[in-house]
Amino acid sequence: MSINIAINSRQIGSDLISTISGRELHAELGVGKDFTSWAKAQIKRGRFVENRDFVKLTQKGELSTTGQIQSEYHFTLEAGKHIGMMSGTDRGFEVREYFLECERRAKAATLPAVKDPRTAALIEALVRQDAIEQEQTRQATELARLQENVAVIEARTQPENKHFTVLGYSNLIGRPVDARTAANLGRKCAALSREKGLVIGDVRDPRFGTVHSYHESILQEVLAPATMN
């Protein structure tokens, strides 16, 4: 199945960036939800920043079916790849691959003609390395988002006895910490739990194996001053 999404150049901030129409992407993904609601949901879900990952344009004189002023969203190619991936569908994967191919072709078109085969091979290797690094950055960003989601879920694994992991509880109260900080706070929670004679629980974490969970009162006492600094 072919993909019909035009790549355009649009001014975002001080740079001229390749962008795609949100409406065309919405149509290609076959989304049932209305465009505006879908676009806002993708922006929130992908944590996209206006005038960096997308631009919002108001269509003067045009009204939606509800009588509201109609807006258009144009996403960068990078944001478009994220949206395709987040859709979790085969079509989303095809759209993402399409954007990657567009980027590869654009890079190839800007490369100068090189006659020396060794130099040409070096340039090709550098281009491939750049693509690998970009993919690794994308994967690292997505992994961080997944870790946050897991941390929030794990925070609710033992709600009946008010036990939570450090990562889970910090996300639950809206004050997330990194893994190293969580480990340091965990040692303090463990010491305080033993001092007060409170049970230290265990939770299976897909990232770190078995990790400890602590009573909510312990977490409140340890995390409050740490996260307020």
Score class of each variant (00 low, 15 high):
S9T: 14
A226Y: 06
H163T: 12
L16S: 15
G22V: 07
R145T: 09
D205H: 15
T66L: 05
H215G: 06
Q68K: 13
I5K: 12
V127A: 03
I17P: 00
T36M: 13
A79W: 00
A190L: 05
F35I: 04
R204W: 09
D15W: 00
W38Y: 11
Y98W: 10
S170A: 15
V114R: 10
L77A: 04
G197Y: 04
E101R: 14
A79P: 01
A79S: 13
L192D: 07
E78L: 00
V152D: 02
T110G: 00
E50N: 13
A226E: 14
N8D: 05
G30R: 03
L100Y: 12
R187K: 15
N161C: 08
L25N: 04
V31L: 05
V199K: 14
R187S: 15
A121M: 09
H212M: 12
N229A: 09
N149T: 11
V152W: 02
L143H: 08
G174N: 06
R45N: 10
F208I: 00
L146F: 08
E195S: 10
I69K: 15
S18D: 06
H215L: 09
H82Y: 02
H74V: 07
E62Q: 14
A151R: 13
E195T: 08
L126K: 12
P176A: 02
H212W: 11
Q158G: 01
R207S: 09
S37Q: 12
Q68N: 13
Y169D: 08
